[in-house]
Every structure is written in structure tokens, then in C-alpha cells.
């Protein structure tokens, strides 16, 4: 599927605003949750929570029906923007590299692999929750029509 949404200035602006909000919240969470015994708890929480929420968002939108203008703006603003900006792969990569370079190879491997595996699990859980939300909305919409 080839789309040209990325060339639409209004949609790019929606993603930018969402990304600004998500990044600000991430900055706050990282400050509230400093590393514990070398484990970057803040980044871990942001990434796992963000993966869960994105799974729930995308699946509920998918189940709600074909993508119209409103659903596209929700997907891009909240998903690509807020949750994309809230989660981060660069911090994860740099933290793993630092732990590794600092000689704590077990924690580096455990943190890196653990984040990826748990991110898979939380995104899957989000999809399960989103499927229920989407199915409920579908029934409500259907009843109203």
C-alpha cells in the first residue's frame, strides 16, 4: 500500500504536535524514574507502556472500521506522534552500549533482550485489549446506524 500522507503538511503537523507531547511526558517520566542498580527503569517503563498503548490504539482503530479522516488523524496524532515520541529506541541502544562498554555484559544483554521480549508481550496484550474495545464500539456504531 502506497500512501502519500507523509507529504501532507497538516498530517505532518499533527505528528509533530503529538511527538512534542509524547517527548515531554517521556522527559518527565525519565526524571521521576531514575536508573535502579544500573537498570534504566525510566526508559523500560516508557517503552513497555508505549508498546501496550500503541497495540491497544491501532487494534481498536482497525476493528472500528475502514480508516476515515478522523481515524487517520487519531492514528497519526496519538500513535505515530504521542506514542512514537513517548517511546525511544535510541536511548535503549545507547544504554545497552554503555552497560556493555562499562563491563556489565549480563545486565546489558538482559536489559536489551528483556525490553524487546517484554515489548512484544505488552504490544500483544495491547492488541487483545484493543480488539475488545474496538469490537464494543463496532456494536455500538452498528446499533446506532
Amino acid at each position: 500500500m502506497t500512501t502519500r500522507h507523509h507529504l501532507d503538511p497538516a498530517l505532518v503537523a499533527i505528528v509533530a504536535v503529538g511527538g512534542a507531547v509524547g517527548s515531554a511526558v517521556r522527559y518527565g517520566v525519565s526524571h521521576a524514574l531514575p536508573p535502579q542498580h544500573g537498570l534504566p527503569v525510566g526508559t523500560l517503563v516508557e517503552n513497555l507502556l508505549g508498546a501496550f498503548l500503541l497495540g491497544a490504539l491501532l487494534e481498536s482503530l482497525l476493528r472500528a472500521g475502514p480508516e476515515d479522516d478522523r481515524r487517520r488523524k487519531l492514528r497519526l496524532g496519538l500513535g505515530t506522534g504521542v506514542l512514537g515520541g513517548f517511546t525511544t529506541y535510541s536511548a535503549l541502544a545507547l544504554e545497552v552500549q554503555r552497560l556493555w562498554a562499562g563491563g556489565d555484559v549480563p545486565l546489558a544483554v538482559g536489559y536489551g533482550l528483556g525490553t524487546v521480549v517484554l515489548g512484544f508481550v505488552t504490544a500483544t496484550l495491547g492488541i487483545v485489549v484493543g480488539a475488545r474495545l474496538g469490537a464494543r464500539r463496532e456494536r455500538t456504531d452498528g446499533g446506532a446506524e
Binding site: 517503552n47 508498546a51 500503541l54 497495540g55 506514542l83 515520541g85 525511544t88 536511548a91 504490544a123
Partner: peptide, 23 residues
């Protein structure tokens, strides 16, 4: 630059979702 730009540019949530979709 790091927390702002790199953090906003990269994404873990989409990476996880795409992996789940492949599975």
C-alpha cells in the same frame, strides 16, 4: 538533542507492533 530529537525520531512502540504483526 539526544532526549528531544533522537528520542522523538526513534520509536520502540512501532518497532514492537511491527514485530508482533509479522508473528
Amino acid at each position: 538533542a539526544a532526549t528531544g530529537f533522537c528520542g522523538g525520531y526513534t520509536t520502540f512502540s512501532t518497532a514492537s507492533m511491527e514485530t508482533v504483526r509479522l508473528a
